[in-house]
């Protein structure tokens, strides 16, 4: 028998396993809640304030990042819409984003550590983190060493996270577990705990990079929220959470917020403790807010959507 199952079993006997059927039944209920009128408005505005407005593409340019920053600062010119929490860009784009959002409530998040695979020497990954922080990143989104986790080298994985924490300095850290590559809920719970034990209060655990086939789901979000709750009850340390990838509609965002409210409570319903990593979610949130404001369903091309004549 290889080391991986043994190490995992030891860890799970300590932290408890996940009841997969129970989780899925529970999250299915979240989608049946009726959120209307005032609570819907509250939820939509809250979701806007939690968005990490993201562009992570090979074709990103300083110009594209500039328009992303403008959008982050003023999501919509009608109504009373809050700014988003942060813009999330590649390290090379941090200095371009800094020109627009430094000194504003919008923070700069940067993915680092050889995102999305993490397959680079540790030295390189740490240097990338330091460079992003030096350029002005307020938050660093790192990926864990999934290879180390899956082969049972938990202390290697934790050591690497700890070194990134150190490299971050004052910057907030978000640890991406890449749930789709961890495969089971038990693995997600185990990786959550391993990460939470080495990061600081107020740092995040994050579901995914958005670069693989499956991203944030209500299920893996719930497993991680449960882990955060159990860790908080055990140690008193509050860890924040960021689902990322695949959350495109306002309705989905409300479902995720219901999960937060019903699992962790109001303490986590703010952008210090919960974020959405998304690029197209913001436009749908604005669209629904504008629908609530005017009473009329809105066309997507009013919200800086790349739209054709339709």
């Amino acid at each position: 028998m290889s080391a991986a199952p043994q190490a995992l079993r030891r860890l799970l006997s300590e932290i408890g396993t996940v009841d997969q059927v129970g989780i899925e039944e529970r999250v299915a209920k979240y989608t049946t809640r009726s959120i209307k009128k005032k609570s819907k408005l509250f939820g939509l505005n809250l979701a806007v304030s939690m968005v990490d407005l993201t562009t992570l593409e090979g074709k990103d340019t300083p110009g594209k990042v500039a328009s992303l920053c403008q959008k982050a600062l003023l999501p919509h010119d009608q109504g009373d819409v809050p700014t988003v929490a942060a813009v999330c860009v590649y390290p090379a784009m941090v200095k371009h984003a800094a020109k627009y959002v430094k000194g504003t409530p919008v923070r700069i998040a940067s993915v680092a550590t050889a995102f999305p695979s993490g397959q680079a020497p540790l030295k390189t990954r740490l240097a990338e983190v330091r460079a992003a922080v030096a350029d002005g990143a307020d938050e660093i989104d790192m990926v864990i060493n999934r290879g180390a986790f899956l082969s049972g080298q938990f202390s290697l994985m934790q050591d690497e996270i700890a070194q990134v924490v150190e490299a971050c300095g004052n910057a907030t850290l978000k640890v991406i577990l890449e749930t789709s590559e961890l495969e089971t809920y038990d693995n997600i719970r185990a990786a959550s705990f391993l990460a939470m034990r080495v990061i600081r209060p107020g740092d995040f655990i994050k579901t995914s990079t958005g670069k693989t086939s499956s991203n944030a789901t209500l299920g893996n979000n719930q497993v991680m929220l449960d882990a955060i709750r159990d860790f908080f009850l055990e140690t008193g340390t509050a860890i924040a959470m960021k689902p990322a990838g695949g959350i495109r509609t306002a309705k989905q965002a409300l479902h995720f917020l219901i999960a937060v409210k019903e699992t962790l409570g109001d303490e986590w319903l703010n952008n210090q403790r919960y974020r959405f990593g998304a690029s197209s979610l913001l436009n749908d949130l604005l669209r629904q807010l504008e629908k609530e404001r005017t009473g009329a369903y809105q066309a997507p091309y009013y919200f800086s959507e790349a739209a054709e004549a339709y």
Binding site: G295, A296, Y297, Q298, A299, P300, Y302
Partner: peptide, 8 residues
């Protein structure tokens, strides 16, 4: 009413 007001 929705046919009339839907901006799309």
């Amino acid at each position: 009413p929705t046919f009339a007001s839907h901006t799309h």
